[in-house]
Design a protein around this nucleic acid. Structure first.
Length: 509
RNA sequence: GGUCUGUUCAUCUAAGGGUUAGGAUUCAAGAUUUUCAUUCUUGCCAUAGGGGUUCGAAUCCCCUACAGACUACCA
């Protein structure tokens, strides 16, 4: 059994955009597969036709692709166990339900939704919770409580029925979870789950177990919300007689809200201003859009790095990992046991790390489209140069523009606060003298400007703080940006002088 | 309510019986940058509470508290 090829699957429901938690589940599956030279499959669990959202499946595929997770087998890429979409495997499941029926592990249930609601309501009145199990099933309408004749009549009629698992009474089911260790459940606290719905579709539980078996899945790695259904799944494997090839189970801790209680939700992102989805999502029904990490300017490797270190750690002090390094270092044993609070700040920090690691040229190429959007055409060489000047002060490509627009065009506004603070009465005349001085500079480059400029300021007895900041105000429009002489250098002599003159006129007025 | 699972700085986490409980993020202060940011240095800050076991407990056991998940013909 330890010889078995590692095969894992990511099995989302196409009910909407893939959430950060889903991406992390996919990632841990992917890393585990690659660590062990195994296969990473994508299976679309679309057994609930009522919740199907058009576009969601494409979104999932695109998100995995953007993140750099290559799917070995899936609906798009095919594979030896196709199809990988449960709706297309519909015909397959009934025979397995029948097998369980025949072996006495399942039974027909004829209760209508109204009758079930009634049973729940009655129990609630008595302060109890209705559970369809060994205690109550004899009082319900099913093939266990009804006579065979009655049952056959119902089956022959057009009445809708479901197939339920016959949960054994008072049996301890123990199974190992790879990050939590051995977990025991007693079946008396479990219920007779519906395996096969009246609409002819299997439920998650049946389809999941059947497909994992058929697709030769070796490890089931999923979110912690599935831990309570582990005993049901184990029992299903037993009932089918598949226990010897049953996958190993692992349940990942959840991602929690940055503040407050509960798991991370879309609302948290909206409220605190960070995306909870990898890609932008437009709801096909309402038309509402939700931000995505990609569109917000995050690099996929930074996003993945952040997600991997949320709940997992290598046991060393290394924090920056490429996907390749993650594949090598990953192990389920080092995944934490408790839910991890999501930290949007750290996500930005990761992006900054990847940002500054990129070459000026790479960033320059990424900047070009932003410039185009602003109506500016610039040479790639210019973009590269600009990125080199400002990249240390940015987290995102979009921020390069905020930090460098004045290198492409003269400022049109001047920061009011800085004007008040620095633009004293004598400043205009000083700026005028500086403009005159700049006319005389012969070699227009940063060091050649800086030295005589400093001498001039000293000779005139001007206040350095006032002069430098006022000059910056003329050139930049505010109190930020790279070294002032490098700015002069880049924009050129004529432009520098023209901006000073423009500022004198504009600020005075 | 019931069943499971958790609980180390504000946050992500390291330390699987012996360390001044380590790192990173955030925050604060100082230095640098005649700007802002970066960078550097420093600081703040934790074993949920109570009982055991032990020479010795963050680590093992029990209780309590708190938190989360699940409790659908949804996944």
């Amino acid at each position: 059994m330890s010889e078995r090829r590692v095969r894992v699957r990511f099995a989302p429901s196409p009910t909407g955009p893939l959430h950060i938690g889903g991406v992390r589940t996919a990632l841990f599956n992917y890393l585990f597969a690659k660590k062990h030279g195994g296969d990473f499959l994508l299976r679309i669990e679309d057994t609930d036709q009522g919740r199907y959202v058009p576009g969601a499946e494409d979104y999932i595929q695109e998100a995995l692709e953007w993140c750099g997770m290559k799917v070995d087998e899936g609906p798009k890429q095919g594979g030896p166990f196709a199809p990988y979409r449960q709706s297309e495997r519909k015909e397959l499941y009934r025979q397995y339900a029948d097998q369980l029926l025949a072996s006495g592990n399942a039974y027909y249930a004829f209760d209508s939704p109204e009758e079930l609601d009634q049973a729940r309501a009655t129990a609630e009145e008595k302060g109890e919770t209705f559970t369809y199990n060994a205690m109550s099933r004899c009082r319900m309408k099913n093939s266990l409580s009804l006579s065979e004749d009655d049952c056959n009549i119902l089956l022959a009629s057009s009445i809708h029925y479901a197939i339920r698992f016959k949960m054994p009474d008072n049996l301890d089911v123990t199974e190992v979870d790879l990050i939590r260790g051995s977990v025991t459940f007693n079946t008396s606290s479990l219920d007779d789950k519906v395996l096969f719905k009246s609409d002819g579709m299997p439920t998650y539980h049946l389809a999941n177990v059947v497909d994992d078996h058929l697709m030769e899945i070796s490890h089931v790695i999923r979110g912690e919300e599935w831990l309570p259904s582990m005993p049901l799944h184990v029992l299903l494997y037993r009932a089918f007689g598949w226990e010897d090839t049953m996958p190993r189970f692992t349940h990942l801790p959840l991602i929690l809200k940055p503040v407050g209680k509960g798991k991370l939700s879309k609302r948290d992102g909206d409220k605190m201003g960070f995306p909870v989805f990898p890609l932008l999502w437009k709801d096909p029904e309402t038309g509402d859009t939700s931000r995505g990490y990609r569109e917000d300017g995050f690099f996929p490797d930074a996003f993945i790095n952040m997600l991997a270190l949320l709940g997992w750690n290598p046991g060393t002090e290394q924090e920056i990992f490429s996907m390749k390094e993650l594949c090598e270092a990953f192990s389920l044993e080092r995944v934490g046991h408790s839910g991890a609070r999501f930290d949007p700040e750290k996500t930005k920090w990761y992006n900054h790390q990847y940002f500054i690691k990129k070459s000026d040229q790479e960033l320059g190429e990424l900047l070009l489209p932003f410039l185009k959007e602003k109506g500016i055409t610039a040479e790639p060489a210019m973009a590269t140069k600009v990125c080199g000047m400002v990249k240390e002060r940015c987290n995102f490509v979009s921020e390069i523009w905020d930090q460098s627009y004045f290198l492409f065009e003269a400022p049109t506004t001047y920061d009011e606060k800085i004007v008040v603070k620095r633009w004293k009465d004598d400043v205009p005349s000083i700026m005028n003298e500086i403009a005159v001085f700049f006319e005389t500079v012969e070699q227009w480059n940063a060091p050649e400007i800086k030295e005589p400029f400093s001498e001039l300021v000293t000779a005139k007895g001007w206040n350095f703080g006032i002069v430098m900041n006022s000059l910056r105000l003329c050139l930049v429009g505010g109190s930020f940006g790279p070294d002032i002489f490098e700015i002069c250098d880049l924009i050129g002599q004529a432009e520098t002088i023209s901006r000073i003159k423009k500022a004198i006129a504009a600020i005075k007025g």
